[in-house]
Amino acid sequence: MNAFVAAYLTQDGLANGAIYCLLAIALVLVFAVTRIIFIPQGEFISYAALTYVALREGHTPGTVGLLLALVAGAGFIDLLREGFGGLVSVVRRSLAPVGLAGLAAVSARFGLPALVDLLITVALVACMGPLLYRIVYRRIAQASSLVLLIVAVAHHLVMLGLGLYFFGPEGVRAAPLIDASVSLFGVPVQAQTIVILLSCAVLVGGLYVISERSFYGKAMRAAAINPIGARLMGISAELAGETAFLVAAVIGAISGILISGATTIYYDSGFLLGLKGFVAGILGGLASFPLAGIGAFGVGLLESFASFYASGFKETIVFALIIPILLWRSMAKAR
């Protein structure tokens, strides 16, 4: 391998690492707040990528119908819980997602600019996060981590099947947000790589500032640090759970759009990406954001170089990484 190849692999590894970093942060956040190992995180990626491409191509994506179904389902459950006195708040909560679904249909019909499609896609997938929390997890929020994990696996399989139904087995690739390449130290760098890295930095920085400075961010951190203490302050587990899922969905949606400009995305691509984010998250014991971030770039680089030396074993090498990490963590704990 010469320096040129190494630089190229590094560039590729960093771009993927940035995506894994975002996913790892989402996984750590959801786990810290709700104790759910959020296997369906990857589905937000494929849903976002496929929704975005469908909108660009002028189809109404199936996710629009799914969003409406989720709104109806969550509204129905809320009515059962709160009685008809809750009707007003149910309707009020449904207005934004329903409007968004309408907007998506309009965009598919008349072809709005790419940036609008991008925003619609992120908003559409973002709305799904809290709705899924309310439908799938709210009732069993106090269950053991194992039960939550099993439900998360089932949730993932359902979303995977729906993805196949909505989008079919064909892969899609979006036009890169900026199609250009610049030369850095004699190595061509794809503009999309820079876009991915910058977006990752902005998102991570933004999340950090929100969690440190805003009152809602502090409340989320409090719920993660001490759930009982948070409840005694009136920060309900539901509010924290819905917010964590909202953030996870936004992160997934943005990751999906970013990566769809760099690689082909199928209905099941998100799962593998999410798992790699999970490997990174494990490095920090699903508790440390900085360690998860470092782990993510490690995973990205390892994968990239493994694909050069032993492309057939690329995935094996990445997932085998989890064994020494778990050994190290449990030995550190035993001491």
Partner: peptide
């Protein structure tokens, strides 16, 4: 006590007023 141990004293106090805020 169930304090938010890794957060500052000021943040702990501020969160006490979260619901009213």
């Amino acid at each position: 006590r169930e304090l938010f141990t890794s957060m500052s004293v000021a943040d702990n106090l501020a969160l006490g007023g979260f619901d009213r805020w």
